[in-house]
Design a protein around this nucleic acid. Sequence first.
RNA 1: GGAGAGAUGGCAGAGUGGUCGAUUGCGGCGGUCUUGAAAACCGUUGACCCUCACGGGUCCGGGGGUUCGAAUCCCUCUCUCUCCGCCA
Length: 427
Amino acid sequence: MIPISTIRENPEKVINRLTIKNIDAKSAILQIIALDDVRKETQRNMDDLLAQTNNLAKEIGILFKSGKKEEADALKQKNTDLKEQAKALEQKLEETQTKLQSVLVQLPNLPHESVPSGKSAADNIIVKQAGEMPVLQPDAMPHWDIATKFDLISFDMGSKVTGAGFPFYKGQGARLQRALINFFLDEAIAAGYHEIQPPLLINEDSGYGTGQLPDKEGQMYHIGIDNLYLIPTAEVPVTNLYRNLILQKSDLPIKNVAYSNCFRREAGSYGKDVRGLNRLHQFDKVEIVQIANPSDSYAILDTMIEHVAGLLAKLELPYRILRLCGGDMSFTSALTFDFEVWSAAQERWLEVSSVSNFENFQANRMKLRFKDDSGKTQLAHTLNGSALALPRIVAALLENNQQGDQVRIPHALRAYTGYDYISLPKV
RNA sequence: GGAGAGAUGGCAGAGUGGUCGAUUGCGGCGGUCUUGAAAACCGUUGACCCUCACGGGUCCGGGGGUUCGAAUCCCUCUCUCUCCGCCA
């Protein structure tokens, strides 16, 4: 949520910035300012009345003690009347605030100055490409066929037991998953992140705090009987840990890493996008999350990008980094870089990480603040990034490293997998 | 799931209808003393809203109610603890 102070300070700038995200916010901004004016005036009037009732109540107390009952009774009536007026104002104040909130909540975060304009993924800017694209043999297979050939993953079993998009990992495939999770966690810990194991279910307040609610209600699995949501990413619990906290400046930056299962309904996806591991309803991901001093957050974003790039280099995967354009950025983000790996058999780039600075957008929603040098509380910045999401990494590893009857494992992973090559299952 | 107890400021812990935003202790910060430190002593120490400011208002787990007046009484929700049951 954009702080209302930001809007009041420079409404024109806010409107201009939001055009980068292809939003015409003019009427919303004007409405917000008008509602905020009403809010202030109503509050002022209500406070005046309440001050009067407070004073009267004290007087009545004193009168009672000194036995002047009639005078006290007269004041009582007066105070009841004042109280009723105050009540009416309180109601108006609440209505105004609710309305104000509902407009504010619908505004996406302001994009950073460096965000290019654009309508869709086609307008993203490639800022870096690294690694060698492998040349495959003519009989090379897409990863879903490799997974079957080496008995690594069963999509059919998942469909039977749960539904499409919930695969079973088996044998060397399961081991590969575990290897990647441990590799990613160890790399993050070596980079100074603190490991967290979060709950996989979150409540409504948490969904609201990081911005999934109310914006993306339909994308999360909802447990109606307990009103809980399955997490779409560890970002939600790990960031909400700090909801409603006032941290010390010396606490920052906070660097956490969490492995979790992620659950996404992915309503409306179809075709080759969802083939094999390309898009799942349940998948594994290691997420890095930082809570930062605003003055440091963009430098921190750079370190997170370097961290993710380092992982891909160690996995020997060709990748590219995209600076997302306004039209392709998420609701909550101020600046996002996506990482894509080359999936050689499918001959397409697959998104495996998204690294974002949310500035104070999430912090404002969840009242995450810190005390600065002058002892004032101010909103912190939040950042996160996938480091990394597993399924598409597995897809690229399998496709890029296939060598007939075996699949080569990159050196960095071998200590974790316990095997150097995936081999055909023993019959 | 059943029975009971509880939720107060960074922490501990008073406060059961009237100048209580809240006694006190610890911790934190500032000062006196000291070559320095400790001890002792003095002072200070929550968040949010309105206001240029003075000042005013709100907040004692969340929400609602009673009352002229609520941290204190009532209702409700959430959470914590103890005992019983079940259980990885």
